[in-house]
């Protein structure tokens, strides 16, 4: 099983519902977020293109954060989800330095926190909160090993990219372009 998320940048309107849903679902402290919206403006009027992306931890296959963690607090669980065990984390910041996507932050309580793909929901057969609430249905979630999953189908039929593939991290969040 290999969980992945696909973001349709042509359907995303940048409403930030995914951000708020995540903050609510995961009790993210005020002023912090595990997912966010990036707007890329390309060109100048009248030839302007805008790309909207809902971004989060890329749950990389080759995750530098897991590699550099001195205690094993950052680790990979079933389905390739990268998570942090709070009571093993010493708050050294190595994983924060190692992430090319700046997807991790230091929780006010001291440990490092990030997107978990809502694995507490996955265990119940539900989708991550951000996917569930997206009003334009631009987020797809599923198992890449299953050819009939939403993500596999989306990646088969459309052009896609990942972020900073040159960093060598093999990110598992795909963006339809």
């Amino acid at each position: 099983m290999r969980y992945a998320m696909v973001v349709d940048t042509r359907k995303c309107v940048g409403c930030s519902d995914c951000v708020v849903a995540c903050q609510t679902e995961n009790n993210v402290p005020h002023g912090y977020c595990r997912d966010w919206i990036v707007e890329v403006v390309d060109g100048s009027y009248p030839n302007v293109e805008i790309e909207l992306r809902s971004e989060r931890c890329n749950h990389c296959d080759n995750s530098p954060c897991v590699r550099c963690c001195p205690t094993g607090a950052s680790h990979i669980i079933d389905g390739g989800v990268v998570v942090v065990t709070a009571n093993k984390c010493i708050g050294c910041g190595a994983c924060i330095q190692s992430c090319p996507y700046d997807a991790r932050y230091s929780h006010p309580e001291g440990y490092v926190d990030k997107c978990t793909f809502c694995h507490h929901r996955l265990e119940k057969g539900q989708h991550p909160a951000c996917v569930e609430v997206c009003p334009t249905k631009c987020l797809y979630f599923g198992d890449l090993d299953d050819p009939n999953s939403d993500v596999s189908k989306a990646l088969r039929n459309r052009k896609w990219k990942t972020l900073a593939p040159e960093a060598g991290t093999k990110p598992q969040i795909y963006f339809l372009t």
Partner: peptide, 23 residues
């Protein structure tokens, strides 16, 4: 011209606007 903006109001302490977690 290419520019990138955060529009979700992301302003996480020590991470934004640039990383500054080690002092």
């Amino acid at each position: 011209m290419k520019e990138e903006l955060f529009i979700s109001g992301r302003d996480i302490p020590f991470i934004d606007p640039y990383l500054n977690i080690w002092h």
